[in-house]
Amino acid sequence: MCQEIGHLSEKSIDYILIIRPDIFDKETIQKLLKIGKKVVAYQWDGLKRYPEVFNYIQLFEKFLIFDENDYNNYHIKYPNIQLCENFFFDYDEEAENCQKNNVIYYVGSYIENRIDDLIYTMKELNKFDVNFDINLKYYRSKRPINRPDIKFFKDNFTFKDNIRRLKSSSVILDFKVVDHDGLSLRFFEALRYQKKIITNNKTVMDYDFYDPQNIFIIHHDDMSRLGEFISSPYKEIPKEIVDQYSFSSWLSKYVL
């Protein structure tokens, strides 16, 4: 990447946002720090999931993280970290209308410590008239679990394809991993596209958009009302609340 940005002069870029700085080599990071007037890093995953990121935090004046536990654990050692939340992208990434189907949608990496909750949730949902679109990224050739209602893939979805599937669904699933408690992008995409969500992440209750009619928390909510939850209409959230979780608002609040 250094070759691609090598022609840029020092302080020639007003703002640079680096998402997942740990995937870049330090030579590239140092170059970006020189050419940007303001350079902000954002680690949109738990810090302990990719521990090499700890070698990068001190390089930045501001290092954003989305997990309150990470902030509480590391803000004294790294006073430049700042707590934020995730967001949805507020541009029209797909013009066509998607027909809404009675589909439960999930896409994510296969991580062993969240599979039990996925299987449990699917078992409970099977009691009702639903279809599944469950997709797990997994690199090995042999499936870790043998279930015909779970699709395994190696190549990433495009963002556009993910949004198309999400918009066509009625409910999306979210399962946090042991390493973090922050809210994934799924919550904010569900907020934008008015989709219900079933999750095991109780921290969503602390957010102003939380409503039990739209968000069902397994191991917290009464499973006997799951059928009522998936069949009842989405409760619209006030626009002023939704808009504050857009990427445009996020940039204004944390980067610009």
Rank of each mutant, 00 (worst) to 15 (best):
K100T: 05
I35F: 14
W250N: 04
L17N: 02
I76G: 01
D129G: 14
F153S: 02
V255S: 00
Q58G: 15
I76D: 02
D116T: 02
G36F: 08
K123R: 09
D45I: 03
D67Y: 04
S169E: 07
S12H: 05
Q58H: 15
F209Q: 14
I241E: 11
M122D: 11
L8P: 01
E189K: 08
D174V: 06
F188L: 13
N214F: 15
D14T: 07
D133W: 15
D45F: 04
K38Q: 03
K34R: 05
Y234I: 05
W250A: 03
P233S: 11
D149E: 15
N113V: 04
V177D: 05
F175K: 01
Y120Q: 11
L64N: 09
D211T: 10
Y207C: 08
G182T: 13
D14S: 11
S248Q: 10
S141W: 13
F63K: 06
L191E: 12
E4M: 07
T28Y: 12
E68P: 09
I104H: 12
Y138K: 10
S109C: 02
D181F: 03
S12I: 04
Y106E: 00
F66I: 13
K196L: 12
N113H: 11
K11L: 05
N201V: 13
R225V: 06
F89I: 14
E228Q: 10
I241H: 13
N101S: 11
V40D: 03
F88T: 15
E189G: 07
D243G: 13
R143T: 11
L59W: 03
P238M: 03
D117Y: 07
D25E: 07
K253M: 03
N101D: 12
F66G: 03
I217C: 12
Q99T: 06
E189A: 10
F175W: 06
D90A: 07
F152T: 09
Q99A: 04
R114I: 01
N113Q: 01
T28S: 12
I23C: 10
R143S: 11
Y254T: 10
R114K: 13
I115V: 06
S246K: 14
P212Y: 04
P212E: 08
T199H: 01
L166W: 05
I16E: 00
Q194M: 08
L166I: 08
S248L: 12
K195N: 09
V40L: 02
I218N: 10
F128Y: 15
V178L: 06
N201L: 09
R143A: 13
T121P: 00
I230K: 15
C2S: 04
D92L: 06
N97L: 14
N113A: 03
H75A: 11
L33Q: 05
P79I: 14
D133V: 12
L118A: 09
S252D: 02
P144V: 04
C2K: 04
T203N: 14
F60C: 07
S252F: 01
L136E: 07
K62P: 12
C84A: 15
T203W: 07
M1N: 02
E124M: 04
I218E: 03
G36P: 00
I241R: 11
V53L: 07
T158K: 15
S248G: 15
R20S: 08
K235L: 09
